[in-house]
Design a protein around this nucleic acid. Structure first.
Lengths: 203, 203, 203, 203
DNA sequence: CATGAATGAGATTTCATTCAT
DNA sequence: AATGAATGAAATCTCATTCAT
């Protein structure tokens, strides 16, 4: 029922339109048209513009969550390991799913209360691993940041920004970016082994 | 030029509406109404929604530029000093002019080509001091970051994010935030004196 | 394509409004209203005022072309015969489809370039039979006008003017007008048999 | 009071706008702007769009009347002479004052009743000389047209049309056009001396 | 004479959505 | 499962005009 290709095509086109014009500025009509589907057909699959938005945001969230889960299975369970894993997931999401990424950051405000609360909860849960890793690292002494909350926010902030400047065809490979932001993250949490910049913590 | 009261009132209301609903979702009608001005009176001052947006973004830019200039006059001219000064300007802008700040990040995409290019140029110029400070610091050996471009972007990214979580009435004072992000910035550029987290570089 | 009833009703009302107020002065709103159709229903059928105009002009052209074709089938193929036939078609069009007629003359200027060029070409083609008849008549010696181009334009000009003074309920029968303008046309082309005004060339 | 240059500039620009977009489609704002006059200044000179139109049409009428008067002073007072003179006046008006000419034909319908009746009276009067010449010519036997009214209308129609195709910079001299239409007019009235096309009635 | 500011109505067009088929 | 037609509200913007200064 939700496995057809029409839905995903619609979502893809809608994503593009929302990113380009914003939710308010995007037209349901041109989404249908660009997808090559009649307006009524589109309404058959998504009962409203709002539903389209909610579906899109949730698909994005699914995708990000999957990345985090993948990264955390059978990997280094130490706080540092989890921090690096989370950063890797996040960087890959911001680069490999750039549009999805921008959308999630910008259009959440347009969710109606009904969907919004559920979505906020998912957001909170998806950032929990990072929050937890930071707490654990501080507790264990691996991270010596004097303001963990700001370190946390800074890591999110700097990774999120990637979606705004990254260019898919550019000469900077995704994994190189992963590596760099992992290093920067270690510095932002005052990792005890990055006492001096000469030390390379490895990936 | 922007000293009239009708114009600035309109801008203030429009800012709020744009932040809340996005450019596309905001209604020129309700902007006029909430400002207490007739629709046509509004059009007398701003010939289009687009012009309103451009004016707003430029006012925001004026404001930020002023902060940077203020911070750079008769202050520590070393790369480190300039880095810290820039971060201070940016953090204050993101907190004290939060709406302006969010707008600048989100709605630039809605500028039409004509105004966009001019605006992009202003953006470039306004970030030049930070870029320059980083380059100089790397050259002088004060900053030891192995990827200056990413350090630069990370600083902007983490500071920009502040506008999204900062709450004006909260218990975190602006100057405390300034201080913290200055420290984090020093770590992100691999400042030579922050070899170990115990060392506090001071503000 | 133009067989629906809503479309043709809209065209009829629009025609009347355009003739009365001019394209620029006519209101799309009152066209819809007078047709008894909602504004949006109207937009479903004609996507813009411009499209409405183009459709109308083309319908007018269709109608005139049909008249010319009808007149030329199985009729006198001599230059004189064709001249008289064309004049008959034109006079009937100007009288029997007076509104259409006035519109075509006045509102072509409001066509946007896209539709304009196509329309001009149709105009050219529809006047080709007259032009050709004149050329042939001059070549054969039937017409002795020393300036064929001006004779051609004059015939069009004097026939076109009919739409401006003709009154449908008046005491002048259409076929009487046809007859008179055929005679006048013969004089305008210097027909060899109208050497003296006493000679009646017949219809 | 009516001798300033602002008024005539306004009229000239307005004429152009009216010809291009029609009365309803023309904007009083852009007329003022293109004239380089403030909107309020324009309202000082012409109290309404309607007044502007009336002024323009009357100026056009003045101009045409003057031409007719000039042509009739100390010229051949025979019906034929008057016919030729009138045609000359009309052709020169349609070519040398082309815009004026087109306007007069198209935009009269937009005059409000108040000005309209006066204007129609002027129109009637200005065509009186031609009507009279025709009547006299028919009475004297110089013109043998069997339907004087149609000859009259045809002459007007074919001369009026000139404004639509004449190109100021073209290779057809105005006086040559005058000559040709005079000849054609003679044929349209069945002038007794144009019994055969070989006969050139002269100018 | 002239201006800057404002008005209120109305312009055309597009919106998300619905419904009978 | 899908379509063509329609709706009514709202969108942005422009109109001719007025008025206090």
């Amino acid at each position: 029922m939700t496995s057809g290709t029409v839905q995903s095509d619609l979502l893809a086109v809608a994503r593009r339109e929302f990113v380009e014009h914003g939710y308010g500025g995007a037209s349901i009509r041109s989404i249908a048209q660009k997808t090559g589907v009649s307006l009524s057909a589109m309404y058959y699959h998504y009962a409203s513009k709002q539903e389209l938005l909610a579906a899109m945001l949730n698909v994005g969230m699914d995708s990000f969550e999957q990345r985090v889960v993948d990264e955390f299975q059978a990997k280094d369970p130490t706080p540092t390991g989890r921090l690096l894993g989370y950063v890797a997931s996040l960087v890959r999401f911001r680069t490999l799913e750039q549009e999805q990424s921008q959308l999630v950051q910008t259009e959440t405000r347009n969710l109606e209360p009904a969907s919004l609360s559920a979505y906020r909860e998912r957001q909170r849960q998806s950032s929990e691993p990072l929050r937890q890793a930071l707490a654990d690292g501080v507790a264990s002494g691996e991270f010596r940041t004097p303001f963990p909350e700001d370190s946390y926010r800074s890591i999110l902030g700097m990774c999120n920004a990637i979606a705004h400047w990254y260019e898919p065809g550019g000469d900077l490979l995704v994994e190189e970016i992963v590596h760099r932001y992992q290093e920067l993250a270690l510095r932002v949490v005052y990792h005890r082994d990055v006492a001096s910049p000469e030390t390379d913590p490895g990936t």
